[in-house]
Amino acid sequence: VKVFRALYTFEPRTPDELYFEEGDIIYITDMSDTNWWKGTSKGRTGLIPSNYVAEQ
Rank of each mutant, 00 (worst) to 15 (best):
G46Y: 02
A54Q: 13
Y8M: 13
G43H: 05
T45V: 12
L18A: 02
T14R: 12
T45I: 10
A54K: 14
Q56G: 11
L7V: 07
V3G: 07
Y27N: 05
P15K: 12
G23D: 05
V1L: 13
I25Q: 05
A6Q: 01
Y8W: 11
G46H: 02
I26P: 00
Q56P: 10
S32T: 14
M31T: 10
Y19R: 13
F10K: 04
S41I: 14
I28E: 00
L47P: 01
T9E: 05
V3A: 11
F10L: 05
F10V: 07
K2L: 11
A54G: 08
Y52D: 03
V1M: 13
K42F: 07
E17S: 05
G23E: 03
S41V: 15
R13A: 12
A6D: 02
D24W: 14
M31V: 06
W36L: 05
P12G: 07
N51K: 11
E21H: 08
G46D: 00
R13P: 04
S50I: 06
T45Y: 14
R13Q: 13
P49R: 06
I28R: 00
D24E: 07
E55S: 09
G46C: 03
L18W: 01
T9W: 04
G46T: 00
I48K: 00
W37Y: 13
A6Y: 03
D16P: 04
P12V: 04
P49S: 04
T45P: 05
L47N: 07
I25Y: 09
A6R: 00
Q56F: 15
V53Q: 01
D24H: 02
D16H: 12
K38H: 13
E21V: 10
Y19D: 07
Y27C: 14
K42E: 08
L7S: 04
V53A: 03
G43Q: 05
N35W: 13
T29H: 14
G43L: 03
W36M: 08
D24M: 05
S50E: 04
G23N: 07
E55Q: 11
I48N: 01
K38P: 04
L7H: 03
L7I: 11
E11T: 14
G23T: 02
Y19C: 09
E55H: 09
Y27S: 06
G43V: 02
Y19A: 14
V1C: 15
T29L: 14
T34D: 14
G43T: 04
F4I: 03
L18R: 00
I25A: 06
T14Y: 12
P15W: 07
E21Q: 12
E22L: 10
A54D: 08
R13I: 08
L18G: 00
N51T: 12
R13T: 14
I48M: 03
Y52K: 05
N35F: 15
F20R: 01
P49D: 05
E17M: 12
Y52P: 02
A54T: 15
F20V: 11
Y19E: 09
K38E: 08
R5C: 12
R5G: 03
N35S: 12
P12K: 03
I28M: 07
F10N: 08
S50V: 10
E22R: 13
T29W: 15
G23A: 04
K38W: 15
I48Q: 00
G39E: 01
K38D: 03
N35T: 13
E17V: 04
N51V: 08
V53S: 00
S41C: 15
T34W: 08
F4H: 06
W37S: 00
G39N: 01
E22I: 13
L18Q: 00
R13W: 05
L7Y: 03
T40V: 12
S41P: 02
G39V: 02
T34F: 10
D30M: 06
Y8F: 12
W37G: 01
T34H: 13
R5S: 04
G23R: 02
A54R: 12
M31N: 07
M31I: 06
V1Q: 11
Y8S: 09
G46P: 00
Q56I: 15
F20L: 07
R44H: 09
T29Y: 15
S50A: 14
V3M: 13
G39P: 00
L7M: 10
T40F: 15
Y8L: 10
D33W: 03
L47D: 03
W36E: 02
G39R: 01
P15T: 10
G23Q: 02
T40L: 08
Y19L: 05
T34V: 13
N35H: 14
D33Q: 08
T40P: 01
R5H: 10
E22T: 10
E21T: 09
R13V: 09
Y19F: 13
T40R: 10
E22F: 09
T14Q: 10
K38L: 15
V53L: 14
G43D: 06
P49M: 06
D30Q: 06
P12L: 04
K42W: 06
K38Y: 15
T40K: 08
V3I: 14
P15C: 09
T45F: 13
V1E: 11
T45A: 11
N51C: 15
E11V: 15
K38S: 10
W37P: 01
K38T: 14
T40D: 06
E11A: 11
R5W: 10
G23M: 03
F4E: 01
N35L: 14
I26T: 06
A54H: 10
G46Q: 00
S32M: 08
S41Y: 09
Q56V: 15
P49T: 13
R44E: 06
T14V: 08
D33R: 06
T9R: 11
P15R: 09
P49Y: 05
E17A: 08
E55D: 09
F20K: 00
E11W: 15
T34E: 15
R44Q: 09
W36D: 01
E21Y: 06
D24I: 04
G39M: 01
T14F: 14
D24Q: 08
A6M: 01
S32E: 08
T9Y: 06
E55G: 06
I26G: 00
Y52C: 12
F10D: 00
E55N: 07
T34P: 15
P49L: 07
F10E: 00
K42P: 01
K42D: 09
